[in-house]
Design a protein around this nucleic acid. Structure first.
Length: 491
RNA sequence: CGGGGUAUAGCGUAGCACGGUUAUCGCGCCUGCUUUGGGAGCAGGAGGUCGCAAGUUCGAAUCUUGCUACCCCGACCA
């Protein structure tokens, strides 16, 4: 079945690309590095958005919107922040075009040069903190708990659909607090929101932890992250939550009067996930037959395909099909009944399999006679003939089972591909032969971290939360270490 | 930004070293008939500024120069 698209074993990167294109999720656009997200792909993103948005609101946040453009001067206010983003910013320098002197097309009107260049936001900390200054005067104004759904631009050298594009969609939360404790707690709360979303909805097990200083967000005191393992043994950062300390408050002069009538800087967090989650979703579960979408995020959870020879048969089948459809919809299940006569059943089977629809129900003349339907599940590709009685309940249970199976499968894969490594030769060997998460001792220095990266391309993905203390020797330097950290090659 | 490569129909391609009728083949698309429980078969048909621009030539997909875009490897990165 898997004709004209690569298998994972042949070429994982090609397999990923073929999948995104052929499952109709997204495609490259006429603009370098920017993708077009197609309706089916966008429908999945909308599901992700809807669930996360609910979770943000349930944890007390509100949505707002800040400008796409940021004055250049804002970027020089927080030193490490500008350092982190300066090399990948798109800059607006003019505000007008004019007809080309040679009559062919248009050119930039040099007379319309901006006094101050505008930066297309790579992230919104600066414009938001500049705004917060006016909003915060007293401890009574705190906390501020805001989220924004937006697009951002980071001018990447090399792009890949969903995993790294020059423009991408995301949400960014930006909060302001009266105390450090409260801000830290907020950063941790949001990390847990992300982790719960990844595990419960995306069926992707993640490791919660903090980043090493070298991997921290530009301007953060602490960066929390959830890290997932993909099927090719590479790690993917699925979400980050930053404790920003008072860095941005100081850079943008955001002070408030506390209960003791003293001026103090506020404490900040920011947190975000992007359309990169789509990449994680694809790579975590899909197989050589195409996409596999966890039921909880699938735009179409059940597809019903009729098999018929003529119009009379179709009429008869449709009656049964539509009644199943409506009984499923009453249970909140999204169903598509595909009765098009422009495509053959076999074609439809392949199509929905490729698009990762969790359950396919087939109804033909045979079933009408016998009061049955054929049910096929995407995760295991198993098919069984079921009595039509209580079919809605059976399918609802099956969806739950598929969701659980996908999570269990991904968890088992991660466990099989997590290795405790205690010497440098083994470290390199495991990395080259199987990849995966390497749990190893690290002496805690940036020098060692950089050396390891240079020699193996592996980085410290995460220092797990509640990491058990364990005395040992750094896998690279041999210096003493009191805990293991997770290394991997990453996306 | 350094090194290498590619550009021919919606997609994938042949032709190019050695210039010469109407640019090859497959998929997809359209029409008709037969089909329909795992990507149907047969017949007919539509679809091309050969990436762009200039040059050499009686004649350029093919040779020369310039430009542009994309891909791979580095560096950088969510």
């Amino acid at each position: 079945m898997a004709k004209d698209f690569s298998t994972r074993a042949e070429n994982y990167a090609q397999w990923y690309n073929d999948l995104v294109i052929k499952a109709d999720l997204a495609e490259n656009s006429a603009v370098r590095g920017c993708m077009v997200i197609k309706p089916y792909g966008y429908a999945i993103w909308e599901r992700i958005q809807a669930v996360l948005d609910r979770k943000f609101k349930d944890t007390g946040h509100s949505n707002a919107y800040f400008p796409l453009f940021i004055p250049k001067s804002f970027f020089s206010k927080e030193a490490s922040h500008v350092e982190g983003f300066a090399k990948e910013c798109a800059v607006v320098t003019h505000y007008r075009l004019k007809s080309s002197p040679d009559g062919k097309g248009v050119v930039v009107d040099e007379d319309a040069k901006l006094e101050e260049e505008l930066i297309v936001r790579p992230t919104s900390e600066t414009i938001i903190w500049d705004t917060y200054r006016n909003w915060i005067k007293s401890y009574r104004d705190l906390p501020i708990l805001i989220n924004q759904w937006a697009n951002v631009v980071r001018w990447e050298m090399r792009t890949r659909l969903f995993l790294r594009t020059a423009e991408f969609l995301w949400q960014e939360g930006h909060t302001a607090h009266a105390t450090m404790e409260e801000a830290v707690k907020e950063a941790e709360t949001m990390l847990n929101v992300y982790a719960d979303f990844a595990e419960t909805w995306m069926a992707i097990p993640v490791i919660r932890g903090v980043k090493s200083p070298a991997e921290r967000f530009a301007g953060a005191i602490e960066t929390y992250a959830i890290e997932a393992l993909m099927q090719d043994g590479k790690a993917l950062q699925a979400g980050t939550s930053h404790f920003l300390g008072q860095n941005f408050a100081k850079a943008f002069d955001v002070k408030y009067l506390n209960k003791e009538n003293q001026l103090d800087y506020v404490w900040a967090t920011s947190w975000g996930v992007s359309t990169r989650l789509m990449g994680a979703l694809i790579m975590a579960h899909s197989d050589d037959h195409g996409l596999v979408i966890p039921p909880k995020l699938a735009p179409i959870q059940v597809v019903i395909v009729p098999v018929f020879k003529n119009a009379e048969q179709l009429t008869l089948i449709s009656e049964t099909a539509l009644s199943i459809k409506s009984s499923l919809e009453k249970r909140g299940i999204s169903v598509k009944y595909d009765d098009r006569d422009t495509h053959k059943p076999g074609w439809k089977f392949s199509e929905y399999e490729f698009k990762g629809v969790p359950i396919r129900v087939i109804i033909g003349p045979r079933d009408i006679e016998q009061g049955t339907v054929e049910v096929a599940r995407r995760d295991t590709l198993e098919k069984e003939v079921l009595q039509i009685t209580d079919i809605d309940i059976k399918i609802e249970h099956l969806l739950d089972q598929i969701q659980k199976n996908l999570y269990d499968r991904a968890l088992a894969f991660r466990e099989e591909n997590t290795f405790r490594v205690d010497n440098w030769e083994e470290f390199k060997k495991v990395l080259d032969e199987t990849g995966g998460f390497l749990s190893a001792h690290w002496d805690g220095t940036a020098e060692t971290e950089i050396k390891i990266k240079e020699e193996t391309k592996a980085t410290i993905r995460v220092i797990p939360l509640n990491n058990p203390r364990e005395t040992g020797k750094c896998v690279y330097s041999g210096k003493p270490s009191d805990q293991r950290v997770i290394f991997a090659r990453a996306y």
